[in-house]
Computed example of a mutant assay.
Amino acid sequence: MSDATRTAPNVSAGDGRARARARNLHPLAWWSWAFGLAVLAGSVTNPWLLLMVALVAGIVVTARRTEAPWALGFRFYLWFALVIVVLRVVFRVVLGGAGDTVLLDLPQLRLPEALGGAGLLGPMTLEALLAGLYDGMRLGAIIICIGAANALANPKRLLAALPPALYEIGTAVVVALSVFPQLVESVQRVRRARRLRGDPGRGTGALRRVVVPVLEDALERSMTLAAGMDARGYGRRGHAGVRERAVTGGLLLAALGGLAVGVYAFLDSSAPRLLAWPMIVLALCLAAVGFVAAGRRVERVRYRPDPWLRADVLTAGCGVVVAVLSTRLQSWAPGVVHPALDALPPLAPVGVAVVLLAVLPAFLTPPPQLQGSLR
């Protein structure tokens, strides 16, 4: 027996063990992770931290995304974020801004009094450009976090994992979140078909020949999705009396009011502390009871529900920890979170550590399943 023959079973066994370890994480775990990263991106204006947030999201997506259609559109979110940054800087140049360091003295155009009398262009200052750049990078980082969640979480499994009380709202949200990945898939399929036919695919005419098939494909997908959901009984309700509906509605309204009061007291330092965290906790408890009561009216079953294992808890926990620590960065390093516009933005180890916590799922979670084994 040759050496190649003797080593072949070992290689096959190793591949089998790797396939057995491969598992797709819970979609809510990925959304919790992305939400925590987005909270961090929305609470800072330091460009170094925002670049690190985008880099961490890209590393995790590259390491843990599948070959599914919705996972192939992350680069389009990157381009979208770049466009947002450019537009934000352009708006700062057009609308003007305060600052002492004048880079270019543009002629100022004064609008008529009927339009508010605002001025356009004028002196272009370094402080205004940096403010526009930092704001654009913050919004772009949030978009990248949302794109990472869309690339990592299966929208169909996300719909199945939602609580029964949020099932109808979740159906609309999941369909809305899956529109952009479906458009990306349609664009890629149409462009691939045109290249196979010898079409170079450049210029305005080529864009028009791509847009029409993409819109037609999106319409067909929407009709197919609607027919499939109607055939499977989506949207059907259980029977509930007037008293049950009144109790459920009262609990949810009380939870919404308590949450609004608690958030306002948390943001307003002059408000009594009794109305902050205690009110938020009470509102969350009322909301949980209301969700359980409302979920009894939804008659549906779950086929092969996704379990929460250690990797899922670790991923969701990373997002929660990053979101909580991002609220403390303001008091730990205020000059790092919101740097001044007249100096080079500083970078503190505590800020870097908080961002790097979000990269743990790329190394401490199992690899995703192959396309052939996806549900």
Rank of each mutant, 00 (worst) to 15 (best):
E113N: 12
A141Y: 00
L139P: 12
L152T: 06
A149L: 04
I143V: 15
N150I: 05
S178F: 02
L78D: 00
L95M: 09
I144L: 13
R138D: 05
F91C: 14
R75H: 12
V187Q: 03
L120V: 11
L133F: 14
L111S: 10
L129V: 14
P155E: 08
D135R: 07
G117P: 14
A161Y: 02
V94E: 01
G58Q: 04
G119Y: 04
D135T: 05
I146D: 13
V60W: 02
T62K: 05
D135V: 00
P163S: 07
A161V: 01
L95N: 04
L104A: 09
L139A: 13
V90I: 14
E168I: 06
G136E: 06
L139C: 13
G122D: 01
R157A: 12
Y77T: 11
L162A: 14
L183Y: 04
A68Q: 09
R157V: 01
F91Y: 12
I84D: 03
R92A: 15
W70E: 13
L133I: 07
P163H: 09
A71F: 01
Y134I: 10
A148K: 05
I59D: 04
G117L: 08
V173E: 08
V175A: 11
L120C: 10
A149N: 03
S186R: 00
G99Q: 08
T66F: 05
F180V: 14
L95A: 12
L55R: 00
A160G: 15
T171P: 08
L130I: 11
V61C: 08
P181F: 01
G73A: 13
A165R: 09
Q108E: 12
L82Q: 05
R65V: 00
N154E: 10
G58K: 00
E127G: 13
V89D: 07
A114D: 08
M124E: 14
L158H: 05
G119A: 15
G119D: 09
G96Q: 08
E127S: 13
F91W: 10
M137S: 09
L109G: 10
Q182Y: 04
I143R: 05
M137D: 10
P163I: 06
V174G: 03
V56W: 00
V61I: 10
G122A: 06
V94S: 13
Q182C: 02
L159F: 14
A71D: 11
A172C: 06
A118L: 13
V184L: 01
V184M: 08
L162T: 11
I143D: 06
Y134C: 13
V179D: 08
A71C: 02
G136L: 08
F76I: 07
G97P: 15
I169G: 15
V60T: 14
V56T: 12
T66Q: 10
T171L: 10
A176P: 09
